[in-house]
Structures are given as C-alpha cells and as structure tokens.
Amino acid sequence: MPQSRLGSDTPAAQKIDAIIAGLGDWRGDVLARIRRLIRAADPDIVEEVKWVKPTNPAGVPVWSHHGIVCTGESYRSKVKLTFARGASIHDPDGLFNASLDAGVRRAIDIHEHDSLDEAAFRKLIQAAVAVNTTAHDG
C-alpha cells in the first residue's frame, strides 16, 4: 500500500499527483488546493492511495494521521471530501454539507464554482487529527 509523509517523490505522492493531473479540469485544481491545505494543516499527515479497483484504477487519495482523516474523490459534478470520523468533529463553520445523517462519517461536496473557507478547512483538518489522536491514545 503506497504511502508517504509529504514527499513528492514517494509512490503515494506520485500517484496522487497523477490522479490530479489526470482530471485535467476544475476538479484537479480543487483537489490540488485541498491537498495543499491538508498538508499545511498537519505536517505529519500521511498520504495514501486506497481502493484501487477496475472501476477506479487510479484509486482514491487518502490522508491519514492515526487513522483516516479524509478521502478525496472526484465525480463528474463534484469533489467529495469524506471525513472518516466526521460525526465526532466539531464543525463550527458548517463546512460539512453531505452525509449529514451518516452514523460516523461526514463529507464536504465541492462543486465547480463553490468557494471554500480555507482557514476553516485547515481548522477542520486539525480537529479531525485531534479526534483520531484521542481515539488512538485512548
């Protein structure tokens, strides 16, 4: 399972680079920006690519720190960021806008012309890492 600690020369980072480049449109731009924000929010984040399958041969970018923090999937009309423990994360800025009735996870759907509060998103990543760290240490 390829993974990396923020190096652009590691197998996971290269695969995520390829996923972003392969999108070739606004979704790649959004995913690249999200990736930069995640890396800035947590320098110890680990990048991975999971769930490679015939219907998705590139796999799904995953960012982890003591467990999955979030995944970044692209669909025709949106980029979906799914937070594995989203229901446990305090979201005072109301960034979660999808999977709101899921038991454990929450998601952010970003469409082509949507804006994202970058400071709030960095705080959300840090809160997700804190939830994972508490669960890991507890």
Rank of each mutant, 00 (worst) to 15 (best):
96 F>S: 01
81 L>P: 08
58 A>D: 10
118 E>S: 07
78 K>H: 11
15 K>M: 13
54 P>C: 08
13 A>Y: 02
13 A>S: 15
63 W>M: 08
115 S>L: 14
87 A>V: 00
69 V>E: 03
96 F>T: 01
23 L>Q: 06
75 Y>M: 12
137 D>T: 15
46 V>S: 11
52 V>W: 02
56 N>W: 09
79 V>C: 03
83 F>D: 03
59 G>R: 05
30 V>L: 13
79 V>H: 06
116 L>V: 00
107 A>W: 01
102 A>P: 11
110 I>D: 03
3 Q>T: 11
121 F>W: 08
54 P>K: 12
48 E>I: 01
14 Q>A: 06
8 S>W: 10
138 G>F: 10
84 A>T: 08
111 H>A: 13
38 I>M: 09
32 A>N: 04
73 E>G: 15
15 K>T: 05
53 K>T: 03
1 M>D: 10
55 T>G: 12
56 N>A: 12
7 G>S: 15
46 V>P: 03
13 A>G: 15
102 A>L: 11
45 I>F: 01
7 G>H: 13
113 H>Y: 15
114 D>E: 10
109 D>T: 04
11 P>G: 01
25 D>W: 06
56 N>V: 04
40 A>G: 02
109 D>L: 10
31 L>K: 00
9 D>H: 12
27 R>W: 05
85 R>I: 00
83 F>E: 02
16 I>W: 03
52 V>K: 07
48 E>C: 04
73 E>Y: 07
102 A>W: 11
16 I>N: 03
38 I>V: 14
135 A>F: 12
7 G>T: 14
108 I>P: 08
75 Y>R: 07
26 W>Y: 07
